[in-house]
Amino acid sequence: MSIMLQIEGLRAAVEGREILRGIDLTVPKGEVHAIMGPNGSGKSTLAYVLAGREGYEVTAGRVTFEGQDLLAMEPEQRAAAGVFLAFQYPVELPGVGNANFLRTALNAQRRARGEPELDAMQFLKEARARMKLLGMPEEMLKRGVNVGFSGGEKKRNEVLQMALLSPRLAILDETDSGLDIDALKIVADGVNALRGPEFSALVITHYQRLLNHIVPDRVHVLVGGRIIRSGGPELALELEQRGYGQVAA
């Protein structure tokens, strides 16, 4: 079994306040792990620390991504290495066309990996194919990045980006929040389409609902900045029925 992501003794603070208090987690290649936990347990902090956001200070521990020291890398280097974060609140970029943004991002990553860049035609072909699979209207390519998008459209746009960038490790930060069942299925289809021996995912969620559609290999319960329990998919059901308080106890 080869390892995609290994987190050891990770501690992190935001504005001097410790949020992650020693996390150990191993995600083998080809596996999808769910991280569940109540509000304020550190789920989003974990996602941001893995993606390298400024202001999230790692105070102890190490993170290895496919054998590389992830914490030593700039956010864009992590992206090029194959780490993708689907944001809980996707950011608006006024005036920046979605297609232009996607192509710029894709080519930046390809350049960093020493791969040839895609021209506009090659990119459009690729994008259209992915969008068809995701059942997304082509018109979304023409709009500004997330500008005027509904909550559901923003999330679908994150999934489109993920599909195009084909990461090796996808981190979904509460991508299911605020989604109706149709949008939820699109998100799930997007992740499931990427599943394979060279792809892993960390699905961060508050609810069990998403896990009906993305069936995880492992479920971890994050409470108070620590993983307090780990188990198979059935753990998610148990959480749903008994609540975090009971499971934590």
């Binding site: 956010p75 864009e76 992206a79 950011v91 970029l93 005036g95 232009n100 991002a105 960093a112 960038l165």
Partner: peptide, 22 residues
């Protein structure tokens, strides 16, 4: 906005260029 762009693989300067062009 900068972090969002960098997470997608753009360098900080590319991100600024993109946002300014937008």
């Amino acid at each position: 906005q900068l972090f969002y762009c960098r997470q997608r693989g753009l360098s900080e300067e590319e991100a600024v260029g993109l946002i300014v062009n937008g």
